[in-house]
Design a protein around this nucleic acid. Structure first.
Lengths: 225, 225
DNA sequence: AATAAGTGTTAACGACTTGTTAAACTTAAA
DNA sequence: TTTAAGTTTAACAAGTCGTTAACACTTATT
């Protein structure tokens, strides 16, 4: 799975070049051209790494780094900037940055520095836990427990269940589920999804207030209570 | 506890200045002036971080980094050198380095960069001891003892065991284990991990309350009792 | 009502993952 | 250079899970 990178660079030319290069290296890059936009994106999605310019419209890189860091202790933050003075570097590290690369730099060097931090960041992924009706899902153990007993789900069963749970107040389109979990959408994958829905219904049948409802021709919705 | 740093710098003046500055920052610094000496020190003691010059007598910094890296996937390696060409930087990262600082640099910047990597390296694992069921693991001697006898583990066996123990409340993903111990993740490393799991199971078989449980397609979990 | 398309469910097949042993390879030490 | 220890790769057996096919049933459309 490719790493999600938030790139914040106000020079459209350079921003495009960096994004293009990183995309070719299979990273999933989101480019923002000002600080506020970047801040919104950060709150909205979960990224694996950030690359920030220092001088940015609306909200500068240092204060951006500070607010990112206060939200997430772990995410690597790399500054990429023309300001090469030692005081700027210090400010960069003080604001929670992990690296400070001075322009002009080579793409190669940027790749290597990104890799260093991605390698060193633990993949503390979606280990969410939640309860549905009288059931309890434990993401650390991938189990679904009920007073009758514990069932260890498979990875895919867990993924479908988590996705349904995260969207339990709305209808999830078949296409959305397939794109999100299978990565693509064809007839047979659709049938496969039906099989999983069938399995999940079986696992959840001891609580009749839980229903995975089909919306004919559209998708599914998890309804509780 | 202060971090142990291996500093390799052949210029006696600069070596002394850096060592002195780092010592004032409460680091425990070992200074070597040539590559072979550094290599012996590395095998002899366990350091938390290395700072290497590139041009060194007897064994250059790049090949030094390679042999350090092959012994220890986790230790941060920082190059500090006058060679600022992009090819040299690439060679530095290729040989397993984590950062590449070009002389002249400020001490402040070096401190910050050291802190970045110390913060991101889990130091807990080094010489920890613990008991699993009726077994006792001694991190100092990397031995696993039981009433039947004592087995001296290899470095890697011990690392896998420690990682499993530190995460015994959850399923460790294969990818996490591989990234943490092997530093990367490919098919053969995965098979290698399976071999180590198999060995550890054999070592731990005298206490049936200890189980290394596989979660198909996900990873492993150490279960005790 | 007839037809077509979508869905529910089960089970078998096949692809992939894992367990284990042993051989091949690598590296450091003698 | 040989030896020994440790790790990776190969090979095969065993197990697991996702996909697919098949068929029954439901919903929409004509």
């Amino acid at each position: 799975m490719s790493a999600k990178i938030l790139l914040v660079e106000d020079d459209p030319g350079l921003g495009f070049v960096i994004k293009d290069n990183l995309t070719h290296k299979q990273y999933d890059v989101t480019l923002c051209t000002d600080g506020e936009q970047a801040h919104r994106q950060f709150l909205d999605q979960s990224f694996d790494l950030c690359i920030l310019d220092v001088m940015l419209p609306k909200k500068d890189g240092f204060s951006l780094a500070q607010s990112f860091r206060s939200k997430n202790q772990n995410i690597p933050i790399l500054f990429v900037t023309a300001k090469g003075l030692i005081e700027d570097k210090i400010a960069g590290f003080e604001s929670g940055g992990d690296d400070y690369i001075v322009k002009p730099f080579s793409m190669e060097e940027l790749f290597y520095r990104i890799e260093v931090f991605l390698r060193r960041t633990s993949t503390q992924e979606n280990e969410m836990s939640f309860s549905i009706g009288t059931y309890q899902f434990d993401g650390k153990n991938i189990t679904l427990s009920h007073k009758n007993g514990i069932k260890t789900l498979t990875q895919k069963e867990a993924e479908v269940l988590k996705l349904l749970y995260n969207n339990k107040d709305r209808v999830l389109k078949r296409e959305e589920i397939l794109k999100s979990i299978w990565g693509d959408d064809d007839y047979f994958m659709g049938r496969s999804l039906d099989v999983f829905i069938s399995k999940l219904r079986k696992y959840l049948k001891h609580d009749s207030s839980i229903q995975i409802v089909n919306y004919h021709g559209v998708g599914f919705r998890l309804e509780v209570g």
